[in-house]
Simulated scan of single mutants.
Amino acid sequence: MAEAPGGLQIIERRADADRIGEWATAAVTPCLYFDPAVAVDRYQRWRSAFPDADAYYAVKANPEPRLIRRLVRAGASFDVASPAEIALCLAEGADPSTLSYGNTVKKAADIRYAYRSGVRLFVFDSQDELLKLAEHAPGSAVFCRLLASSAGAQWPLNGKFGCTSDMAVDLLTQAPRLGLRPVGVSFHVGSQQLDPGRWEPSVAAAARVFGALGAAGIELSMLNVGGGFPVEYTSPVPPIERYAEAITAAVERHFDTCPRLAAEPGRYVAAAAGVLRAEVVLVSRKAFDDDTRWVYLDVGRFGGLAETEGEAIRYQLVTPHDGGPDGAVVLAGPTCDSVDILYQRTAYRLPLALRPGDTVDILAAGAYTATYASVGFNGFPPLPTVCIGDDE
């Protein structure tokens, strides 16, 4: 991506006071400004909290090539979900042995591509997926994803992925007979998980699977505790060290011999490194006596802010008029779809001086924004990313 010209300094206002750096004044909005160095610093903090765990960065959070390149240099592994993500990681220098194909729903052709590319670690959660892996990725290491509760998560993942513990035991028992190497289990307790204790029930379930497989003569070695590690948007979140303590304590309680831990941090690494700069398109009211203004931005749910669905992720906003008189607002995007409303129930207040043409900076927007942007709904282009900072 092109370098941004100099401009406005924005320091992300968060409990850990990560400095975003010098952010450019965009000639065109909306635009995501992203500093890979900040993301790598976040990755290193995660590693410090989990020194004995393998960190598979969830590429889907932000696949910016400069970030992938720097994470490769930092020794990261990668959770990939498609051939395109595999190709990206390999092109930026990742060794295929550092890739985990973490999508439980894969075409046979995609499995073949991954296998030919050298990937040898795959997840599954169903009989048919296991059979596909046996046919198209013979001899590979496989792990089974368990169903897990997302209670406490702001972006739940209930239902679509994972299987029951009983099914996992049966499928992992079949794996050696199919020419595959069963290595462990995984689960995911939901994205932006605010409860550090939420991992324990799934750790306990995983321990039971390990025990059942051990009784059958199959020794599992890896426990992948997924992602979900939160970042601060408009409310404080527990520090990453508290999550590490809770997860480690749960593993020690439920396992006689602790397995090798793996995890898939994505949001935690990428979010703090991005500021999404938008422009106010319109400020209006629905009646002359209505105290609530509608503020329409040039970015909305279809342009990268999909996680505002259900007002789940509540971003912090910065405007040029902060500090002056303010009032209640409804925030909406620019498209002709009535669901393109960001915040209507959540109490947001913005300066009364806000006018069309003003900028609004959306903080901690480095994860799940550019990758969620549509390819052209209503003719609006995808959200561009501009990298700032040195490209080491």
Score class of each variant (00 low, 15 high):
V231Y: 00
G228M: 00
L223R: 10
P236D: 12
Y233E: 14
P230D: 08
L220V: 06
Y243T: 14
V225I: 15
P238M: 05
G228C: 03
A246M: 11
Y233M: 14
G226K: 02
Y233D: 07
V251C: 13
L220C: 10
A246C: 05
M222P: 01
Y243M: 11
L223F: 03
T248R: 13
A246R: 09
R242L: 14
I247N: 02
I247E: 02
P230T: 08
G227H: 01
A244E: 06
R242I: 10
P230L: 12
I240K: 05
A246D: 11
E252K: 12
L223D: 07
I240T: 13
I247P: 00
I240Y: 08
G227C: 04
I247T: 05
E245F: 02
G227R: 00
L223G: 01
G228A: 02
V251H: 04
V225N: 03
S235W: 01
V251D: 11
A250T: 08
L223N: 11
L223A: 13
M222C: 07
P239H: 12
R242V: 14
G226E: 02
V231T: 13
A244T: 01
S235F: 09
T248M: 07
I240H: 05
I247L: 15
A246N: 03
V225C: 14
E232T: 11
G227T: 06
L220N: 05
S235L: 13
L223E: 11
L220T: 06
A249T: 15
E232R: 08
A244Q: 03
P238C: 02
S221A: 15
I247W: 08
A244D: 01
E241G: 14
V237R: 07
Y243R: 12
E232S: 13
